[in-house]
Design a protein around this nucleic acid. Structure first.
Lengths: 240, 240
DNA sequence: ACAAAAGTGTTGCTGGTACACCCATGT
DNA sequence: ACATGGGTGTACCAGCAACACTTTTGT
Protein backbone atom coordinates (compact mmCIF):
# COMPACT_ATOMS: atom_id res chain seq x y z
CA UNK A 1 0.00 0.00 0.00
CA UNK A 2 1.36 3.41 -0.89
CA UNK A 3 2.12 5.91 1.81
CA UNK A 4 -0.24 8.29 0.19
CA UNK A 5 -3.22 6.10 0.86
CA UNK A 6 -2.30 5.65 4.47
CA UNK A 7 -2.64 9.29 5.36
CA UNK A 8 -5.44 10.49 7.59
CA UNK A 9 -7.01 12.66 4.98
CA UNK A 10 -6.88 13.29 1.30
CA UNK A 11 -4.87 16.46 0.93
CA UNK A 12 -1.58 15.02 -0.11
CA UNK A 13 -3.13 12.82 -2.73
CA UNK A 14 -5.30 15.50 -4.19
CA UNK A 15 -2.36 17.58 -5.14
CA UNK A 16 -1.26 14.85 -7.49
CA UNK A 17 -3.00 14.49 -10.80
CA UNK A 18 -2.94 10.72 -10.67
CA UNK A 19 -6.06 10.60 -8.56
CA UNK A 20 -8.12 12.60 -10.96
CA UNK A 21 -8.66 9.78 -13.33
CA UNK A 22 -12.36 9.31 -12.80
CA UNK A 23 -15.26 10.60 -14.78
CA UNK A 24 -18.58 11.14 -13.05
CA UNK A 25 -21.98 11.08 -14.63
CA UNK A 26 -25.63 11.18 -13.72
CA UNK A 27 -28.23 8.86 -15.20
CA UNK A 28 -31.91 9.66 -14.92
CA UNK A 29 -34.55 7.00 -14.64
CA UNK A 30 -37.47 8.96 -15.99
CA UNK A 31 -40.79 7.34 -15.15
CA UNK A 32 -44.15 8.30 -16.57
CA UNK A 33 -47.62 6.83 -16.80
CA UNK A 34 -49.58 6.67 -20.01
CA UNK A 35 -52.85 5.71 -18.36
CA UNK A 36 -52.18 2.02 -18.78
CA UNK A 37 -48.66 1.04 -17.76
CA UNK A 38 -45.59 2.52 -16.14
CA UNK A 39 -43.06 3.66 -18.69
CA UNK A 40 -39.48 4.79 -18.69
CA UNK A 41 -37.81 7.15 -21.14
CA UNK A 42 -34.80 5.64 -22.90
CA UNK A 43 -32.45 6.53 -25.68
CA UNK A 44 -31.09 4.17 -28.29
CA UNK A 45 -27.41 3.60 -27.83
CA UNK A 46 -25.11 4.23 -30.75
CA UNK A 47 -22.15 2.54 -29.16
CA UNK A 48 -20.95 -0.45 -31.18
CA UNK A 49 -20.77 -2.50 -28.00
CA UNK A 50 -24.43 -1.93 -27.32
CA UNK A 51 -25.85 -1.83 -30.82
CA UNK A 52 -29.61 -1.50 -30.71
CA UNK A 53 -29.81 -1.53 -26.94
CA UNK A 54 -31.31 1.26 -24.94
CA UNK A 55 -29.80 3.31 -22.19
CA UNK A 56 -30.92 5.82 -19.61
CA UNK A 57 -30.62 9.50 -20.22
CA UNK A 58 -27.51 10.83 -18.63
CA UNK A 59 -24.52 13.01 -19.06
CA UNK A 60 -21.12 13.61 -17.68
CA UNK A 61 -20.83 15.83 -14.67
CA UNK A 62 -19.27 19.17 -15.47
CA UNK A 63 -16.42 20.52 -13.41
CA UNK A 64 -18.51 23.35 -12.05
CA UNK A 65 -21.78 21.66 -11.25
CA UNK A 66 -23.32 19.67 -8.47
CA UNK A 67 -24.80 16.22 -8.97
CA UNK A 68 -28.32 17.53 -8.50
CA UNK A 69 -27.69 20.32 -10.97
CA UNK A 70 -26.44 17.86 -13.53
CA UNK A 71 -29.56 15.74 -13.21
CA UNK A 72 -31.76 18.77 -13.75
CA UNK A 73 -29.68 19.75 -16.72
CA UNK A 74 -30.21 16.34 -18.29
CA UNK A 75 -33.95 16.72 -17.91
CA UNK A 76 -33.83 20.20 -19.26
CA UNK A 77 -31.48 19.70 -22.21
CA UNK A 78 -32.52 16.25 -23.28
CA UNK A 79 -36.20 16.17 -22.42
CA UNK A 80 -37.10 19.83 -22.35
CA UNK A 81 -38.46 19.74 -18.83
CA UNK A 82 -37.87 21.97 -15.86
CA UNK A 83 -39.23 21.74 -12.31
CA UNK A 84 -39.15 18.00 -12.39
CA UNK A 85 -39.38 15.75 -9.35
CA UNK A 86 -35.85 14.37 -9.08
CA UNK A 87 -34.30 12.42 -6.28
CA UNK A 88 -30.93 10.77 -5.94
CA UNK A 89 -31.14 7.02 -5.61
CA UNK A 90 -27.74 5.41 -5.69
CA UNK A 91 -24.28 5.61 -7.18
CA UNK A 92 -22.85 2.84 -9.26
CA UNK A 93 -19.12 2.50 -9.36
CA UNK A 94 -18.17 -0.87 -10.70
CA UNK A 95 -14.87 -0.41 -12.47
CA UNK A 96 -16.00 -2.41 -15.45
CA UNK A 97 -19.39 -0.84 -15.89
CA UNK A 98 -18.43 1.38 -18.82
CA UNK A 99 -16.41 0.13 -21.81
CA UNK A 100 -14.62 3.40 -22.42
CA UNK A 101 -13.20 4.13 -19.06
CA UNK A 102 -13.79 4.50 -15.38
CA UNK A 103 -17.11 6.25 -14.94
CA UNK A 104 -18.91 6.54 -11.64
CA UNK A 105 -22.55 7.26 -12.24
CA UNK A 106 -25.19 8.51 -9.86
CA UNK A 107 -28.74 7.44 -10.58
CA UNK A 108 -31.63 9.85 -10.20
CA UNK A 109 -35.28 8.97 -10.04
CA UNK A 110 -37.44 11.33 -12.09
CA UNK A 111 -41.22 11.41 -12.10
CA UNK A 112 -42.84 13.32 -14.93
CA UNK A 113 -46.22 13.79 -16.49
CA UNK A 114 -46.08 12.04 -19.82
CA UNK A 115 -48.00 14.82 -21.54
CA UNK A 116 -45.30 17.32 -20.68
CA UNK A 117 -42.82 15.45 -22.82
CA UNK A 118 -42.91 16.22 -26.51
CA UNK A 119 -40.72 13.61 -28.08
CA UNK A 120 -40.97 15.05 -31.59
CA UNK A 121 -39.36 18.24 -30.35
CA UNK A 122 -36.53 16.37 -28.71
CA UNK A 123 -36.26 14.29 -31.80
CA UNK A 124 -34.50 11.15 -32.78
CA UNK A 125 -33.66 8.34 -30.51
CA UNK A 126 -35.83 9.00 -27.43
CA UNK A 127 -38.77 6.75 -26.71
CA UNK A 128 -41.00 5.46 -23.94
CA UNK A 129 -40.77 1.82 -22.95
CA UNK A 130 -43.09 -0.21 -20.76
CA UNK A 131 -41.02 -0.95 -17.67
CA UNK A 132 -42.29 -4.52 -17.40
CA UNK A 133 -41.21 -5.34 -20.94
CA UNK A 134 -37.59 -4.31 -20.68
CA UNK A 135 -35.19 -7.20 -20.74
CA UNK A 136 -31.76 -5.81 -21.36
CA UNK A 137 -30.13 -2.45 -21.59
CA UNK A 138 -26.74 -0.96 -22.33
CA UNK A 139 -24.06 -0.80 -19.64
CA UNK A 140 -25.44 -1.70 -16.23
CA UNK A 141 -28.53 0.35 -16.87
CA UNK A 142 -30.90 -2.54 -16.34
CA UNK A 143 -29.56 -2.88 -12.83
CA UNK A 144 -29.99 0.84 -12.30
CA UNK A 145 -33.53 0.71 -13.61
CA UNK A 146 -34.44 -2.20 -11.36
CA UNK A 147 -32.97 -0.44 -8.37
CA UNK A 148 -34.92 2.72 -9.10
CA UNK A 149 -38.13 0.78 -9.63
CA UNK A 150 -37.77 -0.78 -6.21
CA UNK A 151 -37.12 2.59 -4.67
CA UNK A 152 -40.17 3.95 -6.44
CA UNK A 153 -42.29 1.12 -5.08
CA UNK A 154 -41.16 1.85 -1.56
CA UNK A 155 -41.36 5.61 -1.80
CA UNK A 156 -44.88 5.91 -3.15
CA UNK A 157 -46.01 4.20 0.02
CA UNK A 158 -44.13 6.58 2.26
CA UNK A 159 -44.52 9.92 0.55
CA UNK A 160 -47.12 11.32 -1.83
CA UNK A 161 -44.78 11.51 -4.78
CA UNK A 162 -47.00 9.45 -7.02
CA UNK A 163 -48.97 12.56 -7.96
CA UNK A 164 -46.02 13.71 -10.04
CA UNK A 165 -46.96 11.01 -12.52
CA UNK A 166 -50.56 12.16 -12.89
CA UNK A 167 -52.04 15.29 -14.30
CA UNK A 168 -53.02 18.09 -11.97
CA UNK A 169 -56.57 16.78 -11.91
CA UNK A 170 -57.18 13.08 -11.70
CA UNK A 171 -59.89 10.65 -10.76
CA UNK A 172 -59.58 8.21 -7.92
CA UNK A 173 -59.58 5.49 -10.52
CA UNK A 174 -56.51 6.98 -12.19
CA UNK A 175 -54.75 7.07 -8.88
CA UNK A 176 -55.67 3.53 -7.91
CA UNK A 177 -54.67 2.08 -11.28
CA UNK A 178 -51.34 3.79 -11.06
CA UNK A 179 -50.67 2.46 -7.58
CA UNK A 180 -51.60 -1.01 -8.79
CA UNK A 181 -49.37 -0.73 -11.84
CA UNK A 182 -46.35 0.31 -9.87
CA UNK A 183 -46.79 -2.10 -7.00
CA UNK A 184 -48.07 -5.00 -9.04
CA UNK A 185 -50.98 -5.70 -6.73
CA UNK A 186 -54.66 -4.84 -6.62
CA UNK A 187 -56.67 -2.98 -4.05
CA UNK A 188 -60.28 -3.08 -3.02
CA UNK A 189 -61.84 -0.01 -4.58
CA UNK A 190 -63.91 0.95 -1.56
CA UNK A 191 -61.12 0.62 0.95
CA UNK A 192 -58.75 2.45 -1.31
CA UNK A 193 -61.10 5.41 -1.52
CA UNK A 194 -61.64 5.53 2.19
CA UNK A 195 -57.95 5.41 2.90
CA UNK A 196 -57.08 8.13 0.47
CA UNK A 197 -59.86 10.38 1.73
CA UNK A 198 -58.81 9.96 5.32
CA UNK A 199 -55.34 11.20 4.48
CA UNK A 200 -56.95 14.57 3.79
CA UNK A 201 -54.58 15.11 0.91
CA UNK A 202 -57.14 15.11 -1.88
CA UNK A 203 -59.07 18.20 -2.81
CA UNK A 204 -62.32 17.80 -4.72
CA UNK A 205 -62.11 20.30 -7.57
CA UNK A 206 -65.85 20.11 -8.19
CA UNK A 207 -65.53 18.78 -11.71
CA UNK A 208 -66.10 15.47 -13.39
CA UNK A 209 -64.32 13.30 -15.89
CA UNK A 210 -65.34 13.84 -19.50
CA UNK A 211 -65.38 11.64 -22.56
CA UNK A 212 -65.59 8.44 -20.60
CA UNK A 213 -68.07 5.83 -21.68
CA UNK A 214 -69.45 5.19 -18.22
CA UNK A 215 -70.53 7.23 -15.24
CA UNK A 216 -67.94 9.99 -14.86
CA UNK A 217 -65.96 10.23 -11.66
CA UNK A 218 -65.05 13.27 -9.64
CA UNK A 219 -61.71 14.95 -10.19
CA UNK A 220 -59.27 15.73 -7.42
CA UNK A 221 -56.02 17.56 -6.93
CA UNK A 222 -53.23 16.83 -4.50
CA UNK A 223 -53.32 19.24 -1.59
CA UNK A 224 -49.72 20.31 -1.03
CA UNK A 225 -50.52 22.59 1.87
CA UNK A 226 -52.28 19.85 3.80
CA UNK A 227 -49.28 17.61 3.30
CA UNK A 228 -46.88 20.21 4.63
CA UNK A 229 -48.96 20.36 7.79
CA UNK A 230 -49.15 16.60 8.19
CA UNK A 231 -45.44 16.10 7.57
CA UNK A 232 -44.56 17.81 10.80
CA UNK A 233 -46.21 15.09 12.83
CA UNK A 234 -43.54 12.52 13.43
CA UNK A 235 -43.88 9.07 11.99
CA UNK A 236 -42.97 6.26 14.30
CA UNK A 237 -44.20 2.74 13.93
CA UNK A 238 -41.43 0.42 14.98
CA UNK A 239 -41.64 -2.73 12.97
CA UNK A 240 -39.28 -4.32 10.59
CA UNK B 1 -22.48 24.15 -25.31
CA UNK B 2 -19.84 21.92 -26.84
CA UNK B 3 -20.81 19.34 -29.39
CA UNK B 4 -19.27 16.72 -27.23
CA UNK B 5 -21.82 17.22 -24.51
CA UNK B 6 -24.70 17.03 -26.89
CA UNK B 7 -23.98 13.52 -28.04
CA UNK B 8 -26.32 10.70 -27.19
CA UNK B 9 -23.84 8.84 -25.12
CA UNK B 10 -20.52 9.29 -23.50
CA UNK B 11 -18.08 7.53 -25.79
CA UNK B 12 -16.63 10.46 -27.59
CA UNK B 13 -16.02 12.38 -24.43
CA UNK B 14 -14.49 9.54 -22.57
CA UNK B 15 -11.72 9.25 -25.04
CA UNK B 16 -10.56 12.70 -24.06
CA UNK B 17 -8.61 13.13 -20.87
CA UNK B 18 -10.33 16.37 -19.99
CA UNK B 19 -13.26 14.56 -18.47
CA UNK B 20 -11.18 12.56 -16.09
CA UNK B 21 -10.56 15.36 -13.72
CA UNK B 22 -12.62 14.09 -10.83
CA UNK B 23 -11.54 12.22 -7.76
CA UNK B 24 -14.00 9.91 -6.04
CA UNK B 25 -13.98 8.91 -2.43
CA UNK B 26 -16.05 7.03 0.10
CA UNK B 27 -16.80 8.29 3.58
CA UNK B 28 -18.07 5.96 6.26
CA UNK B 29 -20.42 7.07 8.99
CA UNK B 30 -19.57 4.45 11.57
CA UNK B 31 -22.17 4.23 14.29
CA UNK B 32 -21.86 2.32 17.52
CA UNK B 33 -23.58 2.18 20.89
CA UNK B 34 -21.73 2.30 24.18
CA UNK B 35 -24.74 1.30 26.26
CA UNK B 36 -25.70 4.90 26.90
CA UNK B 37 -25.65 6.99 23.72
CA UNK B 38 -25.21 6.62 20.00
CA UNK B 39 -21.66 7.34 18.90
CA UNK B 40 -19.84 7.89 15.67
CA UNK B 41 -16.21 7.19 14.92
CA UNK B 42 -14.26 10.22 13.73
CA UNK B 43 -10.72 11.18 12.97
CA UNK B 44 -9.07 14.45 13.77
CA UNK B 45 -8.33 16.41 10.66
CA UNK B 46 -4.80 17.56 10.08
CA UNK B 47 -5.72 19.92 7.26
CA UNK B 48 -4.87 23.53 8.07
CA UNK B 49 -8.30 24.58 6.83
CA UNK B 50 -9.98 22.34 9.36
CA UNK B 51 -7.58 22.53 12.29
CA UNK B 52 -8.95 20.64 15.23
CA UNK B 53 -12.15 19.62 13.50
CA UNK B 54 -13.15 16.05 13.00
CA UNK B 55 -13.98 14.21 9.84
CA UNK B 56 -15.47 10.91 8.82
CA UNK B 57 -13.30 7.98 7.93
CA UNK B 58 -12.89 7.76 4.22
CA UNK B 59 -10.50 7.26 1.42
CA UNK B 60 -10.09 7.85 -2.25
CA UNK B 61 -11.51 5.29 -4.58
CA UNK B 62 -8.84 3.25 -6.30
CA UNK B 63 -8.89 2.75 -10.04
CA UNK B 64 -9.59 -0.93 -9.71
CA UNK B 65 -12.19 -1.06 -6.99
CA UNK B 66 -15.91 -0.70 -6.64
CA UNK B 67 -17.51 1.81 -4.28
CA UNK B 68 -18.66 -0.96 -1.96
CA UNK B 69 -15.21 -2.49 -1.95
CA UNK B 70 -13.67 0.84 -1.06
CA UNK B 71 -16.03 1.26 1.90
CA UNK B 72 -15.11 -2.17 3.20
CA UNK B 73 -11.46 -1.37 2.74
CA UNK B 74 -11.82 1.75 4.85
CA UNK B 75 -13.38 -0.27 7.63
CA UNK B 76 -10.73 -2.91 7.33
CA UNK B 77 -7.64 -0.71 7.02
CA UNK B 78 -8.60 2.10 9.32
CA UNK B 79 -10.72 0.38 11.92
CA UNK B 80 -9.56 -3.21 11.68
CA UNK B 81 -13.03 -4.59 11.05
CA UNK B 82 -14.30 -7.03 8.47
CA UNK B 83 -17.82 -8.31 7.86
CA UNK B 84 -19.32 -5.01 8.80
CA UNK B 85 -22.87 -3.94 8.03
CA UNK B 86 -22.35 -1.30 5.35
CA UNK B 87 -24.91 0.35 3.15
CA UNK B 88 -24.62 3.14 0.63
CA UNK B 89 -26.58 6.23 1.60
CA UNK B 90 -25.92 9.09 -0.75
CA UNK B 91 -23.31 10.78 -2.89
CA UNK B 92 -22.25 14.33 -2.31
CA UNK B 93 -20.93 16.23 -5.24
CA UNK B 94 -20.89 19.91 -4.51
CA UNK B 95 -17.98 21.34 -6.44
CA UNK B 96 -16.79 23.36 -3.51
CA UNK B 97 -17.06 20.69 -0.87
CA UNK B 98 -13.35 19.92 -0.73
CA UNK B 99 -10.69 22.63 -0.54
CA UNK B 100 -8.11 20.75 -2.55
CA UNK B 101 -10.05 19.83 -5.63
CA UNK B 102 -13.12 18.30 -7.11
CA UNK B 103 -13.97 15.25 -5.05
CA UNK B 104 -17.25 13.39 -5.31
CA UNK B 105 -17.80 11.37 -2.19
CA UNK B 106 -20.20 8.55 -1.54
CA UNK B 107 -21.39 8.14 2.02
CA UNK B 108 -21.76 4.72 3.61
CA UNK B 109 -23.65 3.89 6.75
CA UNK B 110 -21.76 1.43 8.95
CA UNK B 111 -23.14 -0.25 12.06
CA UNK B 112 -20.61 -1.88 14.33
CA UNK B 113 -20.37 -3.35 17.79
CA UNK B 114 -18.33 -0.92 19.81
CA UNK B 115 -16.45 -3.73 21.53
CA UNK B 116 -15.09 -4.96 18.22
CA UNK B 117 -13.18 -1.73 17.76
CA UNK B 118 -9.85 -1.51 19.50
CA UNK B 119 -8.85 2.08 19.17
CA UNK B 120 -5.45 1.62 20.77
CA UNK B 121 -4.50 -0.77 17.99
CA UNK B 122 -5.61 1.66 15.31
CA UNK B 123 -3.81 4.36 17.20
CA UNK B 124 -3.68 8.08 17.03
CA UNK B 125 -6.46 10.31 15.95
CA UNK B 126 -9.50 8.03 16.00
CA UNK B 127 -12.16 8.54 18.63
CA UNK B 128 -15.82 8.00 19.40
CA UNK B 129 -18.09 11.01 19.64
CA UNK B 130 -21.62 11.22 20.98
CA UNK B 131 -23.71 11.97 17.91
CA UNK B 132 -25.92 14.45 19.73
CA UNK B 133 -22.94 16.52 20.84
CA UNK B 134 -21.36 17.10 17.47
CA UNK B 135 -21.66 20.66 16.26
CA UNK B 136 -19.28 21.07 13.41
CA UNK B 137 -17.05 18.91 11.29
CA UNK B 138 -14.55 19.27 8.49
CA UNK B 139 -15.71 19.60 4.87
CA UNK B 140 -19.42 18.93 4.52
CA UNK B 141 -19.17 15.99 6.88
CA UNK B 142 -21.72 17.35 9.30
CA UNK B 143 -24.25 17.33 6.50
CA UNK B 144 -23.26 13.78 5.63
CA UNK B 145 -23.55 12.70 9.24
CA UNK B 146 -26.99 14.28 9.60
CA UNK B 147 -28.16 12.60 6.43
CA UNK B 148 -26.95 9.23 7.60
CA UNK B 149 -28.52 9.67 11.00
CA UNK B 150 -31.89 10.30 9.38
CA UNK B 151 -31.48 7.27 7.19
CA UNK B 152 -30.57 5.23 10.25
CA UNK B 153 -33.69 6.45 12.04
CA UNK B 154 -35.86 5.41 9.14
CA UNK B 155 -34.13 2.12 8.47
CA UNK B 156 -34.21 0.70 11.97
CA UNK B 157 -37.98 0.90 11.73
CA UNK B 158 -38.10 -0.93 8.43
CA UNK B 159 -35.43 -3.57 8.76
CA UNK B 160 -33.85 -5.29 11.74
CA UNK B 161 -30.44 -3.72 11.26
CA UNK B 162 -30.31 -2.31 14.76
CA UNK B 163 -28.96 -5.61 16.03
CA UNK B 164 -25.65 -4.83 14.37
CA UNK B 165 -25.10 -2.25 17.09
CA UNK B 166 -25.66 -4.70 19.94
CA UNK B 167 -23.72 -7.69 21.06
CA UNK B 168 -24.82 -11.13 19.96
CA UNK B 169 -26.77 -11.53 23.19
CA UNK B 170 -28.72 -8.63 24.54
CA UNK B 171 -31.52 -7.92 26.93
CA UNK B 172 -34.79 -6.36 25.89
CA UNK B 173 -33.80 -3.37 27.91
CA UNK B 174 -30.63 -2.92 25.84
CA UNK B 175 -32.68 -3.08 22.68
CA UNK B 176 -35.30 -0.64 23.86
CA UNK B 177 -32.78 1.89 25.13
CA UNK B 178 -30.98 1.76 21.83
CA UNK B 179 -34.17 2.34 19.86
CA UNK B 180 -35.00 5.25 22.12
CA UNK B 181 -31.53 6.73 21.78
CA UNK B 182 -31.59 6.64 18.02
CA UNK B 183 -35.15 7.82 17.56
CA UNK B 184 -35.15 10.29 20.40
CA UNK B 185 -38.45 9.07 21.81
CA UNK B 186 -39.55 6.72 24.57
CA UNK B 187 -41.61 3.59 24.45
CA UNK B 188 -43.84 1.87 26.95
CA UNK B 189 -41.81 -1.05 28.21
CA UNK B 190 -44.66 -3.56 28.17
CA UNK B 191 -45.85 -2.69 24.69
CA UNK B 192 -42.33 -2.69 23.38
CA UNK B 193 -41.76 -6.22 24.63
CA UNK B 194 -45.00 -7.49 23.18
CA UNK B 195 -44.28 -5.96 19.82
CA UNK B 196 -40.80 -7.36 19.60
CA UNK B 197 -41.94 -10.80 20.66
CA UNK B 198 -44.71 -10.89 18.10
CA UNK B 199 -42.18 -10.28 15.34
CA UNK B 200 -40.80 -13.71 16.14
CA UNK B 201 -37.29 -12.45 15.51
CA UNK B 202 -35.95 -12.85 19.02
CA UNK B 203 -34.60 -16.14 20.28
CA UNK B 204 -34.41 -16.70 24.01
CA UNK B 205 -30.92 -18.06 24.63
CA UNK B 206 -31.86 -19.36 28.07
CA UNK B 207 -29.41 -17.19 29.91
CA UNK B 208 -29.62 -14.14 32.09
CA UNK B 209 -27.80 -10.88 32.47
CA UNK B 210 -24.96 -10.83 34.96
CA UNK B 211 -23.40 -8.14 37.07
CA UNK B 212 -26.47 -5.98 37.14
CA UNK B 213 -27.63 -4.50 40.41
CA UNK B 214 -31.26 -5.45 39.95
CA UNK B 215 -33.23 -8.45 38.82
CA UNK B 216 -31.37 -9.82 35.80
CA UNK B 217 -33.19 -9.96 32.49
CA UNK B 218 -33.25 -12.71 29.92
CA UNK B 219 -30.86 -12.59 27.02
CA UNK B 220 -31.92 -12.91 23.40
CA UNK B 221 -30.33 -13.23 20.01
CA UNK B 222 -31.60 -12.00 16.68
CA UNK B 223 -33.02 -14.87 14.66
CA UNK B 224 -31.69 -14.42 11.13
CA UNK B 225 -33.43 -17.48 9.77
CA UNK B 226 -36.84 -16.33 10.95
CA UNK B 227 -36.25 -12.98 9.32
CA UNK B 228 -35.35 -14.55 5.99
CA UNK B 229 -38.68 -16.36 6.08
CA UNK B 230 -40.67 -13.28 7.00
CA UNK B 231 -38.98 -11.11 4.39
CA UNK B 232 -40.60 -13.06 1.59
CA UNK B 233 -44.03 -11.92 2.64
CA UNK B 234 -44.59 -8.68 0.80
CA UNK B 235 -44.98 -5.50 2.72
CA UNK B 236 -47.72 -3.23 1.47
CA UNK B 237 -49.39 -0.60 3.57
CA UNK B 238 -50.22 2.32 1.33
CA UNK B 239 -50.03 5.49 3.28
CA UNK B 240 -47.84 8.46 2.98
C1' DA C 1 -81.86 -2.72 -21.70
C1' DC C 2 -77.33 -3.27 -21.02
C1' DA C 3 -72.46 -2.49 -19.91
C1' DA C 4 -69.15 -0.21 -17.11
C1' DA C 5 -67.61 1.95 -13.56
C1' DA C 6 -68.93 5.51 -9.62
C1' DG C 7 -70.36 5.95 -5.19
C1' DT C 8 -71.57 4.38 -0.42
C1' DG C 9 -71.75 1.49 4.87
C1' DT C 10 -71.27 -2.28 8.01
C1' DT C 11 -69.00 -5.75 10.43
C1' DG C 12 -65.24 -8.34 12.28
C1' DC C 13 -60.55 -8.65 13.14
C1' DT C 14 -56.09 -7.10 14.28
C1' DG C 15 -52.88 -4.36 16.21
C1' DG C 16 -51.69 -0.26 19.08
C1' DT C 17 -51.95 2.20 23.35
C1' DA C 18 -52.70 3.04 28.03
C1' DC C 19 -52.23 1.39 32.24
C1' DA C 20 -50.99 -1.53 37.47
C1' DC C 21 -49.34 -5.11 39.90
C1' DC C 22 -46.12 -8.68 41.49
C1' DC C 23 -41.22 -10.69 41.23
C1' DA C 24 -36.10 -11.24 41.53
C1' DT C 25 -31.78 -9.35 42.60
C1' DG C 26 -28.16 -6.31 44.92
C1' DT C 27 -27.26 -3.15 48.62
C1' DA D 1 -36.28 -3.17 53.98
C1' DC D 2 -35.52 -0.81 50.04
C1' DA D 3 -34.37 0.43 45.36
C1' DT D 4 -34.19 -0.98 40.72
C1' DG D 5 -35.77 -2.76 36.95
C1' DG D 6 -37.84 -7.58 35.09
C1' DG D 7 -41.93 -9.83 33.80
C1' DT D 8 -47.00 -10.22 32.86
C1' DG D 9 -52.40 -9.14 31.39
C1' DT D 10 -56.44 -6.50 30.34
C1' DA D 11 -59.46 -3.23 28.29
C1' DC D 12 -60.27 0.24 24.92
C1' DC D 13 -59.80 2.28 20.48
C1' DA D 14 -58.40 2.95 15.69
C1' DG D 15 -57.31 1.27 11.43
C1' DC D 16 -57.65 -2.44 7.88
C1' DA D 17 -59.96 -6.06 5.25
C1' DA D 18 -63.81 -8.25 3.45
C1' DC D 19 -67.84 -7.66 1.33
C1' DA D 20 -72.96 -6.03 -1.91
C1' DC D 21 -75.99 -2.97 -3.56
C1' DT D 22 -77.60 1.32 -5.85
C1' DT D 23 -76.54 5.18 -9.22
C1' DT D 24 -75.02 7.48 -13.38
C1' DT D 25 -73.55 7.73 -17.90
C1' DG D 26 -72.89 6.07 -22.89
C1' DT D 27 -74.28 2.83 -26.40
Amino acid sequence: MSEVLKSNNKTSELQTATNFQFANSVDCVIFAYDGRVLKVLLIESDLPDYKGQCSLLGDLLRPDEDLAEASHRVLSEKVGLTNVFLEQVKSFGSFKRHPSGRVITTAYLALVNIKDVQLNKMGNALSWHAVSKINSMAFDHKLILDTCLQVLQRKIQEEPIIFNLLEKRFSLRDLQLLFEQILGIEFDRRNFRKKLFTTGLLTDVGEMEKDVKHRPGKLYTFNHEAYEQIKKKSFVGILF
